[in-house]
Structure formats: C-alpha cells, structure tokens
Nucleic acid binder design. Structure first.
Length: 411
RNA sequence: GCCAGGGUAGGGUAGUCUGGUUAUCCUAAGGGGCUGUGGAUCCCUCGACCCGGGUUCAAAUCUCGGCCCUGGCCCCA
C-alpha cells in the first residue's frame, strides 16, 4: 500500500474541525489587534533562505530545481518570505504594517513528538514600528493568542543586549558558542569555555544574569546598555497590562538577525519539543535589498499547540437527517433545500435504504430526523423527531427550521 | 545523522519466545430478518500478517536489508 511521505499527516474530519476551531480563535485575536492576513508562495527562491541563514540550512530544507533550472525551496518558515513581500509590494505603505499569516512550512528533519516535516505556523509581523510600545504590543498579542487557544504555557521574555554587552570584547566565534551554552543553560560547558579564555569573572556575571529575575539587578551586572530606557519601558507596559511572563536574559534564538527583545513560549505538558512560540525584534529587510526597517514578530507552532491541547471533547454539530419514503422524496429534496438555506447541516439518504434503515442511520449521525412520507408530502408539513429524546411532532416547515436552528445556535 | 521500542482487516487486538489446520476476538462498515419509526438481538457479507531477500518440506513467527511509526539525542529558522 502507498504510504504518505515521512513526517506528514492525514487529518480526518474530527481532527480537521478541531484544528480549524483553534485556527479561527487565533485569527480572531489577530484581527481584533488590527493584524491582517497575508499569504506568500509555498516555495521561494532558495536564495531567500540561504541569504538569511547560510548554506548550512540546505540540508534541512526541501530543495528542488524546476523545469527552468531555477533553484527553489519549500518554505521552511514564513518570516523571510513576509519581509521579501514587504520589500516587493509594500515598501511605501503607511507604517506600521500589522500582518499575520497561517500557513504550512516544510523542514527535512527527523520526525518526533510535535515535530513533523510539514507543519503549520500562525505568525504575526509588525513592520516599521521601532518603539517600546510596539515591542510590548507584539508580546501582549502573543500572550493573548496563546490564551485564546487554551494551552497551558510559560512565556519567557529576554533581551539580547545584556549578554551582548558582557561579551562585547570577546571574539565573534566564541560569542556564538557562549550564547548557545547560555541558551541551553549548559553551565559546565560555559565554565570550560571561559576558563580557556582566562575570564572567570565573566562566567560569574553571565550565569547570574541568565537566572536574574530582577531587571534593575540585571542592568547593574551587564553595565551600560544603550537600550536601557526602551527595555524598561517595554517591561513596564507588560507589567501594567498584567502579562504573565518571566525574565530570561539567556534566550539566544537561533539566528543573528534578532536585535532586541526576544521571547519564547513553552507548553507545560509536552516532551522534548515543547517550544510553542518564538519571536523578537529583528532587522532583516536590508538583507533583501530593502530599507533597514525594524520589525517585531513571532510564530506559534500550531501543531504543537494542538498536541498540547490533546483530545478535547468536541461539541457535535447539529445535523438534520432527512428521512423519506419514495412518495415523499421530491418534497424531501425541497425541505432539505430549505434547511440548508437556513444554514443547518442537512443530509439525505443516498444508499437507497428503507425507511427504518434510514432512521437507524440517522440515529447514529444526526441530532434530528426530518421525516417526509406520503402524509407529510400531502399536507406540506414535516415530522420532526428529536433523536436524543425520541419525541416527535408534525409541524410546519417554518416551525421545524426554527426549532432545529435554535439548537444549532446553542452549539 | 545516532539510540531504544514497534508495524497483524478502517480502528483496537490474540498468536511470535517454542515455525505446522481455514490467523483469534472486539469494534466499525455493507446487507437481511423489517416499504411509517431508530441505537437491542439474530443471521450473512466485506476486510489484515509493512516491503524485499535468506533459511526451511513449511515463515506472521527465525534471519538480513529497507520503508514507516512512537519516544529520546543532535538540531531547531
């Protein structure tokens, strides 16, 4: 039998409905903050991704050549594409731009829990607002969106300047090693690295600062940071808004284009792959030939959110099943039409089942049976049977529509 | 790329150690008993040993390779 490609998934209707429900909650929050949805191509020039991350990531992407010999890649993430689109299409639009997207991405990696080769991200990019309140807005939105999904999580907020300032006279290659060790809280490795440099006092400062929960103290340790006022303002807005977060100045993020505030969200109940959100302030546009506009954004790992939410009991949608006899079938089609026009999910027998069998099938799949036999066809009424309670009554079509519709609106 | 455990009808499973009848059971699905009242029950039907090589008179079972799944490591834009 033909199998689906490694790391991909099929979604049956139950799961699809659950995913769409969460997707729409996210979209609705974004909409209320003024973030409008955009869409970029599923594949892009390979160069778009290598310019930003180096040739090294080719091994982790789906790369292919098209019939014209162009080197292309399935998008491994969306931020780069959104910034490319901004430069191509919207450079002169009034700032700031508030954009969001929900789209699938592809990475050639070893699948495991919460990690698939095709996965979905819900992301947000705020382009062209380089202020403390802009940073705060994006983080507040991140918290709002995660809250809307119902996932249990921890939000960590940091800023790259602290560690950067402490490491300003360290050579770049070593800086990178140290930042990775701080991000992983690998203090053993960190000590070894710094002992090799003969800078034990630096190890002390770094280890203190990554676990520091007090912003004032962090500034004392890190020394004179030019962004101090903006950081204090941003955190002040978050505190005033009651955003639940913890300070974590060790967050490194994977890429060099982040320049300021960075933040990450972690689900409480996932295993190794528990990061469900990541973002920060970055400058990327100049890489693609645009202006050096500042942006702030994040992406939510949608599939991990769904894994974290687990099997949630779904409220079954109200379904009306039209049950008819041969004599009632023409009338039944008209009744079905009326139900569908009223927005009610309505199904008719297609299997040539007898009356009893139709009702039997309806009992398994529907909330109401709408019975149209010879008598109803003649009178123009319908018999509405509530399949949970067993009650039934013969009433006008309008009354039946009203009754089923009322249940539907209660969900 | 590395480590561990797995793969038997649509779903869930027994059988594998110790090779040997028509591969077990539950469920789902389709039909019938039942052409105006359903979920019960009874009967019938459909439907599987992941793929390939090896050993053997004989392989779901032993063996080798591959593919895929689950979890962990690495990585994580």
């Amino acid at each position: 039998m033909l199998q689906k490609p490694r790391g991909t998934r099929d979604f049956l209707p139950d799961e699809m409905e659950a995913r769409r429900a969460v997707e729409w909650r996210l979209r609705d929050v974004a909409r209320r903050w003024g973030y409008r949805e955009v869409c970029t191509p599923e594949f892009e020039d390979l160069e778009l991704f290598t310019m930003r991350s180096g040739e090294g990531i080719i091994g982790e992407m789906y790369v292919f050549e098209d019939k014209g010999g162009r080197k292309l890649a399935l998008r491994p993430e969306i931020t780069a594409a959104v910034i490319r689109m901004y430069i191509n299409e919207a450079k002169v639009a009034p700032k700031p731009l508030r954009w969001c997207y929900f789209a699938d991405c592809f990475r050639y990696e070893r699948p495991q829990k919460g990690r698939y080769r095709q996965f979905w991200q819900f992301g947000v990019e705020l382009i062209g607002a380089d202020t403390a309140i802009a940073d705060a807005e994006v983080i507040m939105l991140a918290a709002d969106m995660l809250n809307a999904t119902g996932v249990r999580y921890e939000l960590k907020v940091g800023h790259l300047s602290f560690v950067k300032n402490l490491l300003k006279d360290v050579e770049p290659a070593l800086q990178r090693t140290i930042r990775a060790q701080l991000d992983k809280k690998d203090f053993e490795g960190l000590k070894a690295t710094l002992d090799g440099m003969n800078r034990p006092e630096l190890a002390e400062s770094l280890m203190t600062i990554v676990s520091c929960q007090d912003l004032k103290k962090a500034f004392e340790i890190a020394g004179d940071i030019p962004e101090r006022e903006r950081i204090e303002q941003t955190m002040g807005y978050l505190d005033a808004a009651g955003v639940r977060y913890s300070l974590n100045l060790g967050i490194a993020r994977g890429l060099d284009y982040y320049t300021g505030i960075v933040f990450e969200g972690f689900a409480d109940n996932l295993g190794a792959e528990n990061q469900i959100l990541g973002g920060g302030v970055y400058r990327l546009a100049h890489l693609f030939g645009g202006d050096d506009v500042a942006s702030c954004g994040f992406a939510i790992g949608f599939d991990r959110v769904m894994v974290s939410l687990g099997e949630t009991a779904r409220t079954k949608e109200t379904v009306a099943a039209i049950v008819c006899t041969d004599e009632g079938r023409t009338r039944a089609l008209a009744v079905a039409r009326a139900f569908r026009d009223a927005g009610i999910r309505t199904e008719m027998d297609l299997m040539g089942r007898g009356f009893g069998a139709q009702l039997g099938h309806a009992a398994k799949s529907a909330t109401f049976a709408v019975i149209i036999g010879q008598r109803e066809a003649a009178s123009g009424e319908v018999t509405l049977k509530n399949l949970q309670s067993g009650e039934q009554k013969t009433i006008t079509l309008e009354a039946a529509l009203a009754e089923v519709g009322a249940v539907g609106s209660r969900g």
